[in-house]
Computed example of a mutant assay.
Amino acid sequence: MAEKRDYYEVLGIQKGATEDEIKKAFRKKARENHPDLHPDDPSYVEKFQEINEANEVLSDPEKRAKYDQFGHAGVDPNYGGADGFSGMGGFGDMGDILESIFGGFGGFGGGASRSNANAPRRGSDIQESVTINFMDACNGKKQDVKLFRMAVCESCHGTGADAGTTADICPDCQGRGSIKTTQRTPFGAISSTKPCPHCGGKGKIVKNPCAKCRGVGRVRVQKTVTVDIPAGIDDGQTIRLSGQGDCGINGGPAGDLLLNITVRNHPIFTREGYDIHCDIPVTYLDAVLGADITVPTIDGDVRYNIAEGTQNGTVFRLKGKGVKKVNRPERGNQYVKIYVEVPKNLTKKQKDLLRAFESSLTEKNYAKRQSFFEKLKEKFDF
Rank of each mutant, 00 (worst) to 15 (best):
N265P: 15
T270G: 06
T131R: 13
A30T: 04
A65M: 12
D125P: 00
E53L: 11
E19A: 10
K351N: 06
V206P: 00
K379L: 13
E341Y: 09
H277D: 15
I338Y: 05
E62H: 13
Y284R: 15
K348Q: 06
E272D: 04
T283D: 07
R355C: 03
L318Y: 00
I132D: 10
T166W: 01
E21D: 05
R331N: 05
T294I: 07
P77F: 09
G320A: 06
E128H: 08
P197E: 03
A287M: 03
P42N: 02
V206M: 03
V45M: 10
Y274P: 00
Q14K: 13
K321E: 12
V45C: 10
Y304I: 02
P42H: 02
P39L: 14
T294H: 07
Y44I: 07
P77L: 10
S43T: 05
K223L: 15
E32Y: 08
F70E: 07
I249Y: 06
T166K: 11
P39R: 15
T185R: 02
K141F: 05
P230Q: 01
D235E: 14
A65G: 14
G232S: 07
K379V: 08
R218P: 11
E3C: 13
I261G: 04
R27C: 12
L147F: 07
Y339V: 12
D299G: 10
G251P: 02
D40R: 09
L285I: 14
Q174Y: 09
V221S: 01
R149N: 11
P120A: 01
A2C: 13
F148S: 12
G95H: 08
P120H: 01
K207Q: 08
K204S: 05
